[in-house]
C-alpha cells in the first residue's frame, strides 16, 4: 500500500542493528535523520547535486537523498557519527580542524564520509582531492583548506 510504513527493514547503522518499518518513499537521508535520530547527515538540495547528505553504504560513498531506506535492507550504513566525537575527533576530523577546513560546517559531514570512503577503497590522495571532492558544494571555504586537510590526513598514513 502507499502512504503506510509497511516495509520492514533491518540495517546496520554505525555498527548498531536497526529494525524499522518505513514507507517505500522514505529517503535514506530522512530515515537516518528522523527515524534513527542521527542528524549529522545534512540535507540541502535533496536531488543529488550538493553532496551534503553523503554517507557510506557498504563502504561506498553515496547520496543518501537518492536512495530509499528500503534499499538498505541488509546493508551497512556509516554516517558522520561513526567517526569521532566532539571530545575525541577522528584523524580526518582533527586534520579538518587543524587546517581550518570548514567555516559554517554544513557541507562537512558529506565531505568527511567521501574522504573516509575513498580511504577505505584504497584511492590515493589525488583521486580523492581531484575527483571526489568536486562532488561536494562548499560555499564558504573556497576548498583550499579542505584540500590541505585531506592532504594532511593522507600524509599521516593512519588507517582510520
Amino acid at each position: 500500500m502507499t502512504g503506510e510504513p509497511d516495509i520492514r527493514i533491518t540495517t546496520t547503522v554505525n555498527d548498531v542493528t536497526v529494525e524499522a518499518q518505513v514507507e517505500g518513499r522514505t529517503l535514506l537521508s530522512d530515515f537516518l535523520r528522523h527515524d534513527v535520530g542521527l542528524t549529522g547527515t545534512h540535507v540541502a538540495c535533496e536531488h543529488g547535486v550538493c553532496g551534503a547528505c553523503t554517507v557510506l553504504v557498504d563502504d561506498q560513498p553515496v547520496r543518501s537523498c537518492l536512495m530509499l531506506a528500503a534499499q538498505v535492507d541488509g546493508c551497512r550504513v556509516d554516517t558522520v557519527e561513526s567517526l569521532g566525537t566532539q571530545d575525541d575527533l577522528s584523524p580526518l576530523q582533527s586534520a579538518m580542524w587543524a587546517e581550518h577546513g570548514l567555516q559554517c560546517g554544513f557541507c562537512t559531514p558529506g565531505i568527511l564520509m567521501t574522504v573516509e570512503g575513498g580511504r577505505r577503497a584504497g584511492l590515493d590522495v589525488r583521486q580523492v582531492v581531484e575527483d571526489a571532492l568536486p562532488g561536494h558544494l562548499c560555499r564558504c571555504t573556497g576548498y583550499q583548506n579542505i584540500r590541505n586537510a585531506i592532504e594532511s590526513y593522507f600524509a599521516q598514513g593512519v588507517q582510520a
Binding site: G3, R25, L27
Partner: peptide
C-alpha cells in the same frame, strides 16, 4: 505514519 514530510509522492515499492 511518521511525523515528517516526504519528498517523493507515495508509491508502492516492489523489490524484484
Amino acid at each position: 505514519m511518521k511525523g515528517y514530510c516526504m519528498k517523493p509522492g507515495p508509491f508502492r515499492y516492489i523489490a524484484a
